[in-house]
Design a protein around this nucleic acid. Structure first.
Length: 515
RNA sequence: GCCGCGUUGGUCAAGGGGUUAAGACGCCUCCCUUUCACGGAGGAAUCACGGGUUCGAAUCCCGUACGUGGUACCA
C-alpha cells in the first residue's frame, strides 16, 4: 500500500559512528529491515560521519558487527558495496555532492551565507536570552541582526567570500507557512515554518549538517521510505522544505517517526545499563577514549533470535496473540500500520522471558558453541559435542540466559565446589549415613550403569532399611549436584558416570558424618 | 518559555461508540513434580483528569495535568 510508484522499496539506516549501538537504534534497523524485506526491497546502511569532532575510531565497524550478530545484513553499505556509493557522507562530501545543492538553494533565495563566528553566536544568545525565551533562535526574528548575506551588501559578501572567510550556509525559513506532511505512524503532521530556526545546512568546514545530507542522500540513493526516531519530528519541516526546494515533494520518501524506547525512569540512556543492571547496547562497547566498557545483550547471554524478537514487539504487534516470531515470520507479518505512536518502557524481565523461550525453542546445537565458550571461560574444557549437547538439553528448561547453562550444568563436568549442607543437616542421622555407605558397595557391583538400574537399587535398599526413598533423595542430590536443583537425580548419577558418582557420595559422606 | 509528539493494570499491549476491557511479562495461590525448573488451573485494571457530543465513550471533540523530545556550524 505504500508502493505508490513502481519503484522498488529502498530504506536506509543512517547512524553516526560515535559510540555503542543502542536498543532504540537496533529497533530502528529492525523496522527498516522488516519493512524492506516485507516489500521485497533493499536495506541500505549509510554512515553519517559529518561531525568530525565526534569521530570515534572503531564505532563504524562495531555497528556492522552488531548488525551481523542480529542477522540484519544490509544490501548496500560501505562494507557491502552498492550502486549508490559512496556510503559514507565524509566521502560524499569529498566529491562535492553537498556544496552544489547548498549553492543552488542560495541562488534560488532559500538559503544564505552566514559569517557569524561561534563567539558572535554565543554573544547573540546571551544578549537575547530572557526568562521567557531561554533559548533564542537564529530565525526570522534575528537573522537581520546577524552577519550574513541578507544583511551585508553584495560587495561585502563577495569580498568576504573571495577572502576565504569561514562561513556557513543557512536555510531561510519562511515566516508564515504551514508545512504539512504525512507520517506513516502518526498521520498528518503540521508545523508553522516561523517557529523553526534557520538551520545550518553547510558547516564552515564544508561538511553538510544532517539536515542537508539526509535530504540530498535520500534523494540520490532513491530512498522511498525514511524511518527515524521521534526526536527528529521537530526538524522534519526543514527536511520537507528542502525536498520541496531541491527535488520536489512528489519525490520525497514516506516518513515514519518511530516512538521512543524509555528506561525505567524516563529516557533510556547509556548509563542506565550500570544503574539498573541490564544492558542497553547490542554488543559490548569499549569506548576507546575512556576505556569504559558498556555491556551488551550478546555478552549478557542473549540469543540474537530473542533479541530481535523482543525488540520487534517493543512498539509493534501482530494483532494476534503470537509473541514468539522467527525473523522470517516477522518479515512476513510486519506492517507499519501496527506500529505504536506512543513510547514504550523497556522491561528487562520481559526481555529475559523472550530469551528463555528461545532457549527452549531452539535445538541446543544452535547455541552449544556459545555455551561451550562460556564453560571454557570458566575454566571448564569441554570435549565432544554429542554428550555436551545432550546434557545441555537436559537443563535448557532451567536457563534464561546463556551463562545459566554453566550454573545449571557445570556439575556434570566437575565435582561441586560447595555443598548445600544446610538443607541436609536437620534431617541427617546415622541410619542415613549407613544407608549410603552400604549403597556405595552395591553401586560398585551394579551391572549396567543407567538411571533405571541405579534408581532400582536405591529404592530396594531404602525399603530394606525401612527408610522412605524420598527422605534419601534430597541428600543424594546435594551430594551429586551441590544444591537443590537440576534434572532427575538418577539421570544425573547415570550421566556423570559410576566413578564420579561414587566418589561424590563418598566425599559428601565425609562431611555429613560430622553433623 | 515556546513548539512537537504521546498517555488502556507495575511493564508490553488488544480493542477505534454498546465487550464480563483480550493476551503476555512480573507478582500471588493451587495442581503436577519426594529437588529446581517446565507444564497446567486460578487471582488482582473501569482505560491520566475535567468538560462536552451521544440513548450510550476506553473508543469522537475541547481543555488541563503528566511524560517525552526539540529549541547546536550533534546526529
Amino acid at each position: 500500500m505504500y508502493l505508490c510508484s513502481m519503484s522498488k522499496v529502498r530504506v536506509r539506516f543512517a547512524p553516526s559512528p560515535t559510540g555503542g549501538l543502542h536498543l532504540g537504534g537496533v529497533r530502528t534497523v529492525l523496522y527498516n529491515y522488516l519493512f524492506a524485506k516485507n516489500n521485497g526491497g533493499d536495506f541500505i546502511v549509510r554512515i553519517e560521519d559529518t561531525d568530525q569532532t565526534r569521530y570515534v575510531p572503531g564505532a563504524e565497524q562495531y555497528i556492522f558487527d552488531c548488525l551481523q550478530w542480529c542477522g540484519l545484513e544490509p544490501d548496500e553499505s560501505p562494507l557491502h558495496g552498492g550502486e549508490y556509493g559512496p556510503y559514507r557522507q565524509s566521502e560524499r562530501k569529498e566529491k562535492g555532492i553537498y556544496q552544489q545543492y547548498a549553492e543552488q538553494l542560495i541562488k534560488d533565495g532559500h538559503a544564505y551565507y552566514a559569517f557569524d563566528t561561534p563567539e558572535e553566536l554565543e554573544q547573540m544568545r546571551t544578549m537575547y536570552t530572557t526568562a521567557d525565551n531561554p533559548s533564542p533562535q537564529y530565525d526570522h526574528h534575528l537573522r537581520m541582526k546577524m552577519k550574513n548575506s541578507l544583511t551585508l551588501t553584495a560587495d561585502e559578501v563577495n569580498t568576504l567570500l573571495t577572502n576565504g572567510t569561514k562561513h556557513a550556509i543557512r536555510i531561510k525559513m519562511p515566516e508564515n507557512e504551514i508545512i504539512a506532511f504525512n507520517d506513516m505512524i502518526r498521520g498528518d503532521i503540521q508545523n508553522e515554518s516561523g517557529l523553526v530556526d534557520d538551520k545550518v545546512l553547510l558547516k564552515a568546514d564544508g561538511m553538510p549538517t544532517y539536515h542537508l545530507a539526509v535530504v540530498v542522500d535520500d534523494y540520490l540513493m532513491k530512498i522511498t521510505h525514511a524511518f527515524r526516531g521521534e526526536e527528529w519530528l521537530p526538524s522534519a519541516p526543514v527536511h520537507v522544505l528542502l525536498w520541496k526546494y531541491l527535488f520536489g515533494l512528489d519525490k520525497m520518501p514516506q516518513w515514519a517517526h518511530l516512538p521512543l524506547i524509555l528506561g525505567p525512569s524516563g529516557k533510556l540512556s547509556k548509563r542506565d545499563g550500570a544503574k539498573y543492571g541490564f544492558p542497553v547496547f547490542a554488543m559490548n562497547w569499549m569506548d576507546p577514549k575512556t576505556n569504559e566498557l558498556t555491556e551488551g545483550f550478546k555478552e549478557r547471554g542473549f540469543l540474537p533470535e530473542a533479541f530481535i524478537n523482543l525488540l520487534a514487539l517493543l512498539g509493534w504487534n501482530a494483532g494476534t496473540e503470537q509473541e514468539l516470531f522467527t525473523k522470517e515470520e516477522l518479515i512476513q507479518q510486519f506492517s507499519m500500520e501496527r506500529v505504536h505512536s506512543g513510547g514504550a518502557k523497556f522491561d528487562f524481565e520481559k526481555a529475559k522471558w523472550f530469551n528463555h523461550e528461545w532457549i527452549k525453542k531452539l535445538p541446543v546445537n544452535h547455541y552449544s558453541d556459545k555455551v561451550k565458550n562460556i564453560f571454557e571461560n570458566n575454566g571448564l574444557a569441554v570435549e565432544g559435542n554429542e554428550k555436551f549437547e545432550s546434557i545441555l538439553s537436559l537443563v535448557s528448561d532451567r536457563c534464561t540466559l546463556l551463562p545459566d547453562f554453566y550454573t545449571q550444568a557445570g556439575f556434570f563436568f566437575k565435582d561441586p565446589e560447595t555443598l548445600d549442607t544446610e538443607s541436609v543437616k536437620p534431617k541427617w542421622n546415622a541410619d542415613k549415613q549407613h544407608f549410603f555407605t552400604e549403597w556405595i558397595t552395591q553401586l560398585n557391583s551394579i551391572s549396567s550403569w543407567d538411571a533405571v538400574a541405579i534408581e532400582q537399587s536405591f529404592k530396594e535398599l531404602a525399603t530394606a532399611k525401612n527408610i522412605k526413598p524420598g527422605d534419601l533423595q534430597m541428600p543424594l542430590r546435594v551430594m551429586l549436584v551441590g544444591g537443590k536443583f537440576g534434572p532427575p537425580v538418577f539421570v544425573i548419577a547415570a550421566t556423570i558416570g559410576k566413578a564420579a558418582a561414587i566418589n561424590r557420595i563418598q566425599q559428601a559422606l565425609g562431611i555429613f558424618s560430622t553433623f
